[in-house]
Amino acid sequence: MLQLENIVKDFGGLRVLDSLSLQVGEGLIFGLIGPNGAGKTTLFNIISGLSRPTAGRVIFNGTDITHFAPPSIAARGMGRTFQNIRIFKELSLMENLLAGMHRLYTYSPVAMLLNLPIQHREEKAMREKAMEILELFHLAGKAQRQAESLSYGEQRKLELARALATSPKLLLVDEPAAGMNPAETEELMGEIVQINNRGYTICLIEHDMKFVMGVCRQVAVLNFGELIALGTPEQVKCNPQVIEAYLGKDVCKL
């Protein structure tokens, strides 16, 4: 589904990604881990088109999207969330999701101005679909509330819900559990698995090892912009290089 070929990214004289190649297969929950500054978020930015690699190619579903603008990449079926939450704070939860569904609508400005039935039909269908997604994240009861009024954990979920509303084939999730308490994290794990069961491929960055080991089927470990390990969570967590660079010995015993 997603193929990275020899991605290099330099910021000035600093090489943050060094000839990185990876493949994310369809249907997986793929984990991307590594210490801070390893280049994980930079990699997400390159995949979603917010930043251009210095060298290398990004292939998504057979298309080279390396030089595509973010909206065109999204239109091909990629959704993402951000490490620092970027929901639309002044809009309601429902409006956040409907904005996310923008590219699923088909009605034209003329249909809007002439009040054609297609607009009402689509708006109604989208609202129902948005409600379904909100229910999945236990946010349906707050659909009309302003997004800013949600708790931190709920805001993270809303952002995930909004990304899901774009109907992506691949969902990039940047630290979904950051700032969540253990109960919220547990609930989120269930939701991630549920989304995956519905057929969405997920690639996630996370520092919570219980989370990563619990939901991911494949894990890649980055350190200083290089891939140091790739495999199932079991294979990765006892890899000596990974223990040295990131996890420490305790995780291996989990």
């Binding site: 970027r86 002044e90 809007m112 101005l113």
Partner: peptide
Amino acid sequence: KLKNSRFGRALEAIREDEVAAAVMGIKT
């Protein structure tokens, strides 16, 4: 008419967060 249409919402999304709007497929 603009206010509650997909176009009005796209404008609001861009005002709130242009980057987030772009990665959702809105041609900012």
